[in-house]
Simulated assay, not measured.
Amino acid sequence: MVKQERAARTRESLVHAAAEVFAEEGFAAASIAQISRRAGVTSGALHFHFDGKTSLALAVEERAARAMREAAAVLEERDRAGGPLRVLVGSTYTMLSLLTEDVAVRAAFALCADTAHSGRVDLRRQWRSWVEGVLADAERARLLAEGVALQDAVDLVVALTVGLDGLGGFEPDRGARQLLNRIWTVVLPGIAGGEVAAAVLVEALAEDETD
């Protein structure tokens, strides 16, 4: 049991160290030596747990995907009563928190766009699918503004929020969240319009102030 716990801790350290190095250096520039040194283990110990950089990158992506699924489940439960647009807006604040606080998520988003790595988990595509599903719920509930096509709304939200991995580089004051507040203040009335957008914004901004 002690050996198993030690092995689990070593593996955890290696995945965390790999995420940090991938986020900072990219997949091609990252080295096994860097990752093992960051984790405080030998290269031999690293190879005992992982075949190499690719298997480490896959482990980072799987951890990030799990973190996003767990966050989405909490979000849906918390914001369901506020309707799909409330869920949509809330999800972007959750995403920003993940990118700021969870290095695996930050690294996995970087790996998605890294041509040197071919992963199994595309978080950017998963994010698009999530946005499309929530906005489809909003369309069925007749919450989208007149003349707004579903795919146009999806494209707009994804284009704006895919840059959240850049916002994640802000210092952990409230600069990034305040910028996200301003983005939604401009964008949401174009998607939903009228009283619906106003109500969602009031709830979202008020909740952000209390976080």
Rank of each mutant, 00 (worst) to 15 (best):
L111D: 00
E25T: 05
G119F: 06
A64Y: 02
A113N: 11
I32W: 10
S91K: 09
A17K: 06
V41Y: 13
N181W: 10
A30F: 04
L164S: 05
Q4Y: 06
L46R: 09
D51M: 00
V200T: 06
R78Q: 13
A145C: 03
D152S: 04
T185D: 13
L14A: 02
L164C: 03
G90Y: 14
R177N: 05
E195L: 09
L56P: 05
V89H: 11
V2A: 13
D114I: 07
S97E: 15
A159I: 02
A145G: 10
A159K: 04
D122M: 06
G83Q: 10
E132Y: 15
K3H: 11
A197Q: 03
A7V: 00
I32P: 11
L179T: 13
A7Q: 12
A33C: 04
P189H: 10
D79K: 14
L85C: 04
V103K: 10
R80M: 10
L143Y: 01
T54Q: 14
H49Q: 07
R63G: 07
F22S: 01
L144D: 03
Q34H: 11
L96T: 07
V158L: 08
R125I: 01
G52R: 11
D211P: 00
R69S: 11
A113M: 09
L150I: 05
L135T: 03
P189K: 07
F50Y: 12
R80F: 12
E101A: 14
D51E: 13
L123D: 04
T161E: 02
V41S: 10
T115K: 15
A113I: 00
R38H: 04
A71W: 05
T185C: 11
E209T: 00
D152A: 06
D122C: 11
G119W: 08
D114Y: 10
R86Q: 14
Q4M: 13
I183V: 15
W127N: 15
E207A: 09
A104R: 12
